[in-house]
């Protein structure tokens, strides 16, 4: 059982399959606990293992936040560096992954703020995204490549249209599979605010993606 758990941990964290109810809020076992202890005791190789373990989720979040691979990579590096600098502040009051998300989200928000001071750069990003640059990996269903790719571009573009606070909330919840409580911890806001932001984000996305939803199809079951 232990071996299986370790094996599972060694694989990169995947976007969770959405299951109603999610993880129980009272769960306190941290799969990163041992590595974190080693790192905080000065073992830098443990930190490298932590980076490997979390790179997928951090990059996924940042890519969806930034809409640009280069930006996402850059911010991911900044996030991990920040994690390394401030790791001593992690007091195990939440899971380490929550701490990682928090650092990554802050890094993304800081970068967005910096970009916000440069409107031209923002516009450039938006244009590149709408033009279909920086495409993610191919769609899961090769037979639906053309349609799937277009839809994905539109969804990503719609995400970038969302205000940053709504975007990060819905990404953490719907893409990263964090619970309301975890999102609240990551963003440092009340759970009620999280719910409200996710609700608004979904409604805005639905409006932005009108041409893909509301056609009366029944095939979009969760």
């Amino acid at each position: 059982m232990v071996a299986m758990s370790i094996g599972m941990l060694d694989s990169p964290p995947k976007a969770p399959v959405r299951v109603k109810g999610r993880r129980p809020a009272h769960e306190i076992i941290d799969p990163d606990g041992e590595l974190v202890s080693r790192w905080q005791s000065g073992d830098e190789s443990a930190f490298a293992s932590l980076v490997r373990r979390h790179e997928q989720r951090v990059f996924r979040l940042l890519y969806r936040m930034m809409g640009n691979r280069e930006e996402a990579e850059d911010v991911a590096q900044e996030a991990f560096l920040s994690l390394h600098r401030h790791g001593h502040r992690f007091r195990r009051e939440a899971r380490f992954s929550t701490f990682v998300y928090r650092v990554a989200a802050n890094a993304a928000l800081n970068r967005r703020r910096a970009l916000g001071r440069n409107r031209n750069r923002m516009n450039e990003l938006k244009v590149s995204q709408q033009a279909g640059f920086d495409l993610p990996a191919g769609p899961r269903d090769p037979e639906d490549a053309a349609t799937g790719s277009e839809v994905q571009h539109r969804v990503q573009a719609a995400l970038l249209e969302l205000p940053t606070d709504l975007r990060v909330a819905i990404l953490l919840y719907d893409i990263e599979g964090q619970s309301y409580q975890e999102v609240a911890r990551v963003l440092g806001i009340p759970e009620g605010t999280v719910k409200s932001r996710i609700h608004r984000a979904r409604n805005t996305l639905r409006d932005l993606l009108r041409s893909y939803v509301g056609r009366g199809s029944e095939g979009a079951a969760l």
């Binding site: 490298a48 790179e55 997928q56 990059f59 993610p136 969804v155 409604n203 639905r206 893909y212 939803v213």
Partner: peptide
Amino acid sequence: RELRETVALLRGLPDPVPPPRLVAGVMQRI
């Protein structure tokens, strides 16, 4: 239904593959 479809679109986004040099880059910068 629309809400469900919207969420399905969002959750249907593929996972971007992290750059292979990400971890090495981080450790080098450290």
